[in-house]
Simulated scan of single mutants.
Amino acid sequence: MRADQAPVDALVELPECCLRHAIESQPALALRMRELGFRPGVRVQMGRKVAGGARLVTIGSARYAVDAHTLRQLEVIPVAA
């Protein structure tokens, strides 16, 4: 599933291929996402939607607003609570 399709408040994990599309199409974006902590195996709490289709996401203690375009490129796996 893509990150933009995950339900609000869902806990998801980033699979090994999580940034494959971004790496292929926008290497600079993929690098920035890795710098922010978006790496395979990381668990991400999907927050509420905000303006323009962006979403608030939490990784560890850090919260980010991620735009809709980037969310569409990020693969995630739902984690059972």
Rank of each mutant, 00 (worst) to 15 (best):
M1T: 11
M1C: 09
R2W: 07
R2G: 01
A3C: 15
D4S: 13
D4R: 05
A6G: 06
A6E: 04
D9R: 12
D9T: 02
A10R: 04
A10W: 03
A10H: 03
V12R: 09
V12E: 08
E13R: 15
E13L: 01
E13C: 07
L14W: 11
L14N: 03
E16F: 06
E16K: 14
C17H: 11
L19C: 06
R20Y: 03
R20L: 10
H21I: 00
A22L: 10
I23N: 01
I23P: 01
I23V: 13
E24G: 04
S25V: 13
Q26N: 10
Q26H: 05
Q26R: 10
Q26T: 05
P27A: 08
P27Q: 04
A28L: 15
A28H: 14
L29T: 12
A30L: 07
A30T: 11
R32S: 12
M33C: 14
R34D: 02
R34M: 14
R34Q: 15
E35S: 14
G37W: 07
G37S: 12
G37T: 10
F38H: 07
F38S: 00
R39I: 15
P40N: 11
P40W: 09
P40H: 11
P40D: 09
G41E: 10
G41I: 12
V42F: 02
R43C: 07
R43Q: 15
V44R: 00
Q45R: 15
M46C: 09
R48E: 14
R48P: 07
R48D: 11
K49R: 14
V50A: 10
G52K: 06
G52A: 02
A54T: 03
R55G: 04
L56R: 13
L56T: 06
T58R: 15
T58C: 06
I59W: 02
I59M: 12
R63W: 01
A65S: 07
A65G: 01
V66K: 00
V66H: 00
D67G: 08
D67R: 06
A68M: 03
A68I: 03
H69T: 13
H69C: 05
H69G: 10
T70V: 14
T70Y: 01
R72D: 13
R72P: 01
R72A: 09
L74V: 08
E75S: 09
V76E: 02
I77A: 11
P78A: 15
V79N: 06
V79F: 12
V79D: 08
V79P: 10
A81R: 15
A81D: 11
